Structure formats: C-alpha cells, structure tokens
Simulated scan of single mutants.
Amino acid sequence: MYLVHVRLRAPDQTSLPPDAAQLFLGCARDGEGLEHVSAHGDAVGGPVVGFYLTAPSLALAERAASALCHRTLLAHAAFAAWSVVSFGAALVPQHWNSLLQSDGRDMQMQDPSTRNLFHPF
C-alpha cells in the first residue's frame, strides 16, 4: 500500500469542505486501488489530501491519486477553482526507523544540529 499526498491550492484561502474525504472517496473508480482518504485542511503549506492506495508500483499509485484528485475537483462545486499544486509519495520516518531498530542497527536518521529528519548533512 502506498500513501500519496496531493497538495491543493484554494482560491482566496478557502478551506477544505468538512466532508472533503468523502467527496474524494465518492469519485473513486473500480481498479484504482483506493483504500482510504484523509484530508488535512490545516497542513503547513496548504491543504493536503492523503490517498492510501494498493497498486503494483509507486508510479501507478501516484497516477491513480492524481487522476482521482483531478476528477473530484471537476465533479464538485465545493472545489470550484481549486488546483493541484503537487503530488507524490509520503515518507513515513517511523516505518523506516522501526526497520532499522528491528535489524539491530543504530543509525541516526536526522541532522543532530537541527533535528530535521530530511535535512542533508
């Protein structure tokens, strides 16, 4: 299963509808592999919708999430003038940390000076 985040841009800082996740779920098609949707209107950088999909590859999961998101934006008046800013697989550091710990390794996964998980050294 893949988690694909789609970042959205709203006109005039409009917030996500309260039933946004259900609106996206309702536009899913058979064969897209959609399992679950989470919507985060208060995410840093703008609204984000998380699509949990089963797919044979990350590329296919990202393609399905993008198609589903664009279809939903076109289908519902609540998303009039909304646009997709970006989409891509989400990194889940807790998963990778648990794999390292279960393998007996002790590897630091963050920049110790900033505690930023993804900051290059």
Rank of each mutant, 00 (worst) to 15 (best):
residue 23 L to N: 10
residue 11 P to C: 11
residue 34 L to M: 00
residue 45 G to L: 06
residue 82 W to F: 01
residue 43 A to L: 01
residue 76 H to W: 13
residue 11 P to A: 06
residue 102 S to A: 10
residue 113 S to R: 03
residue 41 G to R: 05
residue 60 L to D: 01
residue 100 L to C: 04
residue 87 F to K: 05
residue 5 H to D: 13
residue 1 M to D: 00
residue 96 W to G: 06
residue 108 Q to M: 12
residue 28 A to D: 01
residue 89 A to F: 14
residue 36 H to E: 10
residue 5 H to I: 04
residue 21 A to L: 15
residue 76 H to G: 03
residue 88 G to M: 08
residue 108 Q to D: 06
residue 116 N to S: 08
residue 35 E to S: 02
residue 90 A to K: 14
residue 33 G to E: 09
residue 64 A to D: 13
residue 114 T to C: 07
residue 96 W to K: 15
residue 24 F to Q: 01
residue 114 T to N: 07
residue 78 A to M: 12
residue 115 R to H: 13
residue 87 F to H: 13
residue 20 A to D: 00
residue 99 L to Q: 09
residue 44 V to S: 12
residue 50 G to E: 05
residue 82 W to M: 08
residue 37 V to G: 11
residue 42 D to L: 07
residue 70 H to D: 12
residue 72 T to S: 13
residue 85 V to C: 03
residue 36 H to R: 05
residue 18 P to H: 06
residue 4 V to F: 15
residue 51 F to Y: 01
residue 68 L to A: 05
residue 66 S to N: 10
residue 121 F to A: 07
residue 47 P to W: 00
residue 4 V to Q: 07
residue 74 L to Y: 15
residue 78 A to S: 12
residue 52 Y to R: 11
residue 15 S to A: 13
residue 7 R to F: 11
residue 73 L to N: 11
residue 65 A to D: 08
residue 85 V to K: 04
residue 35 E to Q: 12
residue 84 V to G: 04
residue 79 F to D: 03
residue 73 L to W: 08
residue 69 C to Y: 04
residue 76 H to A: 04
